[in-house]
Design a protein around this nucleic acid. Sequence first.
RNA 1: GUGGACGUAGCUCAAUGGUAGAGUCCCGGAUUGUGAUUCCGGUUGUUGUGGGUUCGAAUCCCAUCGUCCACCCCA
Length: 421
Amino acid sequence: MKDKNIQPIRGMSDVLPGQTYLWEYLEDTVRAWLQSYGYLNIRTPILEKTDLFVRSIGETTDIVEKEMYTFTDRLNGESLTLRPEGTASCVRAVLQHNLLYSGPQRLYYTGPMFRHERPQQGRFRQFHQVGVEALGYPGPDIDAEHIIMCERLWNKLGLTGIKLRMNTLGSVDCRARYRERLKKYLTPFGNKLGDSVRNRVERNPLRVLDSKDPALQPIIDGAPRLLDDIDEASRKHFEELQATLRRAGIAFEINPRLVRGLDYYNLTVFEWMSDKLGAQNTVCAGGRYDSLVEQLGGKPAPACGYAMGIERLLALLQEGAAVAQPADVYLVHQGEAADKFALQVAEKLRDSGIRVIVHCGGGSFKSQMKRADSSGARFAVIIGDDEAQAQQASLKPLRESGEQIRTGITEIVDMLRKHHV
RNA sequence: GUGGACGUAGCUCAAUGGUAGAGUCCCGGAUUGUGAUUCCGGUUGUUGUGGGUUCGAAUCCCAUCGUCCACCCCA
């Protein structure tokens, strides 16, 4: 059964009803939270021209070098890629439709992303992100807004143990200068570094800084620090951000080695990490990308944003953070007249906002009652021929004590209302 | 991409190289129109797949697919 049937693709999983209520809870909470900060939803295609990601994320990043689902469109030979992240598409769409013409934009998106990595805890080939982007805002005030709003979300969701780490990469020029300096420093260590690391020194030296390889630690510790040689404007930006966060009572740690995996970042970068997730412990990360808009062909515009991993947030939700919402009423019916009447009753109950499952498929009262019970509904409404004859129904509580009562339909609606259904 | 652990009923798991089992779930019944508890009865498998060793393989070997965890990397 497992081999003969078609299996899902490795690292891509079905989310079943036993889990989806948690997803829906999270999605609802997140949407309300985003709206409370005035962010507007944007939806872009999942598939884009490969070049969009290569140009925005960076040719020498792991994502572009080995993790993208890229294929050729058979019909016209174009190279297409399933989006590995959302920022590039979002910026592309903003440029396409000149959204910045009418001023800065606060946007968000949610949906699946795709990276061809080996799956493990907290890492999937299809995973889901909520992304938040603010375009056209230059100052550290928006950086601070992003971080403060994250903290609010963790509180709303009841998540604990999530810590903030920040760094600044300086301006684009500053970052480029530092890159060369770092390269100069690292190159002499060539032999000590493995091939892969040496390659990285050549192509993307900043990535060496956040390596976990213990052998590299002494070398990394001795490396020049970007923070020590940052231009005045960048320093001021970072300091203002810190001051705002302190006023908001948000704890953070500055980690000079924090470098993000995507090339487009500059100035502020940050990362929220959990202590409960195993090796993949980043639940949310982002920063500023002031050059990306121009890089993708737009008029220069500052921007910053971040993304969080839905699966990782779900893994942190406390047991019982949300409960599945069963129907209020399971409607049991038997007999020709009862079957017809039951449908009318069900619609009437729904008119009053009551959630009703109508039993389908016939069967004895006993078997129908079993279904009623296992559906989780709080009440059974029972209609046999006797009730149908009298245009009545019987209401039986399934989760609490109380007698079964036979009465008219409007009375049943009233009684259900009294029970806060 | 590299490494380690693991694949037995829908689910959770047993079974020294000797007939593949339990719990749960599901279905039916316990005075004919009433659930979850209790009691009785019943169904459930190409032991992931393909080879090999053996008189005999769920068990040992090889390959393959998949899952999990870690490396790497990241949300």
